[in-house]
Design a protein around this nucleic acid. Sequence first.
DNA 1: GGGCCCGCAGGG
DNA 2: CCCTGCGGGCCC
Length: 288
Amino acid sequence: MAIGALQGVSQGQGFVDRRELYDSGVHRALQAGIVGRGKVGAESIVLSGGYVDDEDYGSVVIYTGEGGRDQNSGRQIANQSFSRGNQALVTSCLEGTPVRLVRKMNVEGNDVSGPKYRYDGLFHVESYWQETGLDGHQVCRFRLVDERAYQGYLGSNSPTELNHSTSARRVESVVQRVVRDTALGRRVKELHDYTCQVCGGRLHCVGGPYAEAAHIRPVGRPHNGPDDLSNLLCLCPNHHVLLDRGALVIDQNWNVQPLATKLRMVDRHKLDPAQTSYHWSIWRNESD
DNA sequence: GGGCCCGCAGGG
DNA sequence: CCCTGCGGGCCC
């Protein structure tokens, strides 16, 4: 029942089997890959290589949700939904709470007695979406980033001062909305005079207006959206969040659904319909 | 607090 | 390859 780091457990620590992981409290399940509750968030996940759709890049992990899987063959035989453990990971994303990540190691040679699992520290659920998996069914997917990588993005000089329960959400926001907010981000905001393309709102702060540059198709793996104007919107914070989390999608006619309002356009800013169509594809089942 | 469902085991 | 199975989450 503990979220975050555990006393007496060090990063990189090995565990012989799932029973030892269970007893240590690192991952309190003998079989399931996700431990956590829908309304509280996830505690821990195990990356075992059992899912064909998983991608492990070290500090970035693309994790496939649970469910719809044939126990024996290991193949997806039904669609997944954002429920159970998948809902727990969504909650971790929305709340910004860290998740313990355990990797199953490929044991070299015949050393059966050695540790088969390794605790690899805390990860943040940066985003979630769904897509058609390699086996042809809808799967839930999660982009997890090593918390140390986050601190690297931020250039933080005191990683240990980060309080996960209170500041992680803000950390995530900074990564998505400020660090990537370069000259291009300023450009798109100037083109729209800091007016939200969804609601037309313009936030007047002391010192000037505030808006956010939002990528339609996310940049970085696995989405690999382009970091250019044709993939950027000028949005207020609320509609930025709703777009990123799939509550808003943009259809072929530039209507924002389910609001049924037209995306506000200006002549000098052309969008690429391929990007809105990609965004649609990863959220089509959730937005109706 | 009991019953039910389900899962990124593990071993034979 | 098959099957037994432990225990968490969740809904009564």
